[in-house]
C-alpha cells in the first residue's frame, strides 16, 4: 500500500505493509535513525515524534495511519546548520549521558514549549512524563528545558 506523508517538511511516498509501524518507516525506509526504538510498547518514549502537532510514540502508530500526515522527527528540528535552542540547551546543561532517550526527550520538550513557552517545573515534568531516561536522573534535563524556554521566550519566536 502506498502512503504519502510529509516528513520534516519533505513530501515522501512510501510503500508499506499493514503491520509496518511509523517507527519502522522512519528508521528503515527513510533512514531517519535519530528516532530510537526502546521498549516497543509506548512506555519509554525513545521513539517519540510529532505527528500532526501531537506527540506520539511512533511504535504505537501504524505507518498506514500516518498517511497524509505531517511528521517532525529529531532530524527536522535544526534550522539549516544551526541547532534548535532546545538542542543547544541540552548540550549547555550537560543533560545528555548515553543519549539514547534524548531525541524523544527533545521532541517532547518541543511539543511542551510549543504549547506553553512558560512552563512551571511541574508542567515540564508532566510534559516529559512519557519519556524515560536511565542515566541522568532528569535534573539536568529539566534544567535544559527551563533554559530553552528562557532563550526561546527572550527571542520571541520558535525557529523550528
Amino acid at each position: 500500500m502506498k502512503i504519502n506523508l510529509t516528513v520534516n517538511g519533505e513530501k515522501r511516498e512510501v510503500e508499506v505493509k499493514p503491520q509496518t509501524r511509523l517507527l519502522d518507516l522512519l528508521r528503515e525506509d527513510l533512514d531517519l535513525t535519530g528516532t530510537k526504538e526502546g521498549c516497543g510498547k509506548g512506555e519509554c518514549g525513545a521513539c517519540t515524534v510529532i505527528m500532526n502537532n501531537e506527540l506520539v510514540a511512533s511504535c504505537l502508530v501504524l505507518a498506514i495511519q500516518a498517511d497524509q500526515s505531517e511528521i517532525i522527527t529529531i532530524e527536522g528540528l535544526n534550522c539549516q546548520d544551526e541547532l534548535h535552542p532546545i538542542q543547544k540547551a541540552f548540550i549547555n546543561k550537560g543533560a545528555v549521558q548515553c543519549g539514547f532517550c534524548i531525541p524523544g526527550m527533545i521532541m517532547s520538550s518541543k511539543q511542551l514549549l510549543d504549547e506553553n513557552i512558560n512552563p512551571t517545573e511541574a508542567e515540564i515534568k508532566r510534559g516529559l512524563s512519557g519519556n524515560i531516561c536511565r542515566c541522568t536522573g532528569y535534573v539536568k534535563i529539566i534544567d535544559a528545558v527551563k533554559e530553552a524556554a528562557h532563550k526561546m521566550k527572550s527571542r520571541g519566536e520558535d525557529d523550528d
Partner: peptide, 9 residues
C-alpha cells in the same frame, strides 16, 4: 491516562 504520547492516540 498514560502519558502525552498515549493520550494523543
Amino acid at each position: 491516562v498514560g502519558s502525552p504520547q498515549i493520550r494523543s492516540r
